[in-house]
Design a protein around this nucleic acid. Structure first.
Length: 642
RNA sequence: GUUCCUGUAGUUCAAUGGAUAGAAUGCGGCCCUGCGAAGGCUGUGAUGGCAGUUCGACUCUGCCCAGGAACGCCA
């Protein structure tokens, strides 16, 4: 397989620098925004200028000449020209031969293009059966099949993963540590995301989490990692007690009618109402508050008087969540529950009182975070129950016993950042081996204009509602365009385009930053949007259908015009963009890239006729391939027609 | 109060310490007898403040201002 162009240039630079006796230099190669600065550029000359005590331009000149000399000795001409520019940039312009060569590569590799050869990526949702909540026995694959001996270079690339995450480690404690790679060269990663709470809504914050988690999982798989998606759900605790209280205080008839007649979505909404009622009563009515606290205890000890209702309500939620996972195209291989790890949490914490990891305080058991620059948190309540902290603590070894990971990623909202620092500091003292392999990756909150979402006040936008809103808008467009598609086709188009709009709006922003939710923007299908990319794909496919394209004939010695060159260069960047997006946990960089690619294609389309021109047809086919592969990595489906 | 995060066009977002700070949207023009106008072209408009480090700062450091989050028995 062809090496990433960027890696090629880095290797070249390192080689040339070594010849001039310089080692250990951070080689920085970028893709300049201005085409006038070449396809790639480096600033090494300026970086090493001080060390060499020479003017940067002089160094740049020497490097330029060395590379040109080196290239002459090589068989294929990678660059058309290499320029130097003040104050010391070196700009590389890819030759038409290498652009066309790469174009052939895209067409040959098809859906594998941009994916690492060892990647277990499947476009078709497939073989892998999603685990249902009703069948929640662990079925974790620890298969070592698909072993691939990775090249040295790839190992290096892979190990960077984990170092570049915005981690949540306490400064100086384990922030700088990387994780070890697996022996077979393919690291095993367990990634926890979604984490909705049964008895509560699945809102747009969860939707962002699941969208980011799925995209990130696919990016990791595309860069040679084995990934287990897991989901950890809070089926126990005060929020559950509040919802159960609500259920108990709703007239029997109403409850029964929901039980027997309604869909899982309606049942879930019913639970949401019960929760809101319970939460309100908790704050306003002291008697109700006592009852709720009592219910909470009963759930913890699985008291027969409440356990059936708890199980039923829980199942309603889980069934509903399953329907959402199916709708958005995500699956999990294991569902963990707080009720499952709570007893282990109590035992684990109790075991570490004697060695002073934890101490008793005011009847509770706490961890003194102050000793590592953090704050104190309660792990076991004075009632003797595990808090969230103790449960998470026990979850780590449980996860590891079922799937010996090299890296365990936990994705949650950034409001939990401080919490995870403390929890991981405690884990560091109990199981340092696991703490070092664990990364909390916080993602930004989804804020409403009216402020934070609150299931208590009902100020919540659910995932289904948002997707349905987007879907309605698509139907309007189809109507306006007097769509010739059948009802079933229109349904498919509306659903897929709606999901694309919503997912893309959540992926195109830096994962860690909060976003201000804007209904208009998130259901948009104009400009920088998911449907724009789907539309561009559909348009490309439409042209190809009319062309009866055959495998591209050898194209050589063609002068590329500006638009062709721009598109060919953009296609060439895809593999390295995928690598970078995975390394930095930044699906948004992939979004930016794909939008730029779409624009480059649409520009070519607007200015030049494609049919009847082999090169442009090849570019069109390659664009369709890259759009499809790229959208797949974002978890967005493509449409042949829309 | 302590700690952490965030301040970029009217709005929503980009920019591993690089070159003239990019887009989208909005508002104003233009383009469908050539392949899909959910498109293309074009005008408009921004780095909270003051210092510092650097050849070079939206980016790093300090202080100030503004907003958000977390902070012992919720998750």
């Amino acid at each position: 397989m062809m090496r990433r162009m960027k890696e090629e240039i880095i290797l070249l630079l390192e080689h040339v620098l070594r010849e001039t006796g310089i080692t250990d230099v951070p080689s920085l190669v970028t893709r300049p925004e201005d085409p006038g600065h070449g396809n790639y550029a480096t600033n090494v000359a300026m970086i090493i200028a001080k060390k060499l005590k020479k003017p940067p331009m002089e160094i740049a000149k020497e490097i330029q000449e060395a590379i040109i000399k080196h290239q002459k000795a090589s068989t294929n001409l990678l660059f058309e020209k290499i320029e130097i520019a003040p104050p010391g940039f070196i700009n590389f312009f890819l030759s038409e031969a290498s652009l066309i060569n790469q174009l052939g590569q895209v067409l040959n590799e098809g859906e594998r293009f941009g994916m690492s050869p060892a990647a277990g990526v499947r476009h078709k949702k497939s073989e892998e059966k999603p685990q249902k909540h009703s069948d929640r026995k662990a079925r974790l694959s620890t298969s070592t099949a698909d072993k691939t001996v990775a090249s040295k270079k790839e190992v290096v690339t892979r190990q960077k993963i984990g170092e570049n995450f915005r981690t949540n480690a306490a400064p100086g404690v384990y922030a700088e540590k990387s994780f070890g790679g697996a022996q077979d060269g393919k690291s095993r990663i367990m990634i926890e995301f979604a984490d909705p709470n049964p008895f509560k809504e699945f809102h747009i914050g969860h939707l962002r989490n699941i969208t980011l988690g799925e995209s990130f999982s696919r990016l990791l798989e595309a860069t040679s990692h084995e990934v287990q998606r897991i989901n950890y759900q809070g089926d126990i605790g005060m929020h559950v007690a509040k919802a159960l209280w609500g259920l108990l205080h709703i007239p029997d008839e109403s409850y029964l009618s929901y039980k027997t007649h309604k869909t899982s979505k309606e049942k879930a909404e019913f639970l949401g109402k019960a929760y809101a009622a319970g939460a309100q009563a908790f704050e306003e009515d002291d008697h109700a508050k006592e009852e709720i606290v009592e219910i909470n205890k009963k759930v913890y000890r699985q008291d027969p008087s409440i356990v059936d209702l708890w199980k039923e309500g829980r199942q309603w939620s889980l069934d509903y969540f399953d329907s959402i996972y199916k709708r958005v195209g995500t699956h999990f291989t294991r569902f963990y529950f707080e009720s499952e790890v709570a007893p282990m949490g109590v035992a684990l914490v109790a075991d570490h009182i004697k060695d002073a990891v934890f101490e008793e305080s005011e009847g509770a058991v706490v961890f003194r975070g102050e000793k590592v620059g953090l704050h104190t948190r309660v792990f076991i309540t004075k009632e003797g129950y595990a808090t969230y902290e103790a449960k998470d603590l026990a979850l780590a070894p449980l996860k590891y016993s079922e799937y010996p990971y090299d890296l365990s990623i936990i994705m949650t909202g950034n409001e939990q950042s401080a919490y995870f620092r403390v929890m991981l500091a405690a884990l560091q003292q109990i199981r340092p081996d696991l703490a070092e392999k664990t990364r909390h990756i916080p993602f930004g909150m989804v804020n409403l204009k009216e402020g934070k979402m609150s299931s208590r006040t009902g100020n919540v936008i659910t995932a289904d509602w948002l997707i349905d809103q987007a879907k309605n808008r698509i139907y309007h467009i189809l109507e306006k365009n007097e769509s010739k598609y059948s009802k079933a086709q229109q349904e498919e188009i509306a659903e897929k385009a709606a999901l694309a709009a919503v997912k893309y709006s959540m992926l195109k922003v830096t994962a860690s930053s909060d976003i201000a939710f804007d209904l208009e923007k998130s259901v948009s299908f104009e400009g920088d949007s998911g449907p724009y990319l789907q539309y561009t794909f559909a348009r490309a496919k439409s042209v190809l259908r009319k062309s009866h394209i055959r495998p591209m004939r050898p194209i050589s010695l063609i002068r590329l015009n500006q638009e062709e060159r721009g598109l060919a260069a953009a296609l060439n960047y895809f593999p390295e963009v995928v690598t970078e997006a995975a390394q930095h946990f930044a699906p948004n960089t992939l979004c930016t890239y794909l939008f730029g690619l779409g624009q480059a294609f649409n520009l070519l389309y607007a200015k030049h006729e494609i049919l009847g021109n082999d090169l442009r047809l090849a570019l069109t086919a390659a664009t369709a391939t890259v759009l499809k592969n790229g959208l797949f990595l974002l978890g967005i489906a493509t449409l042949e027609q829309m």
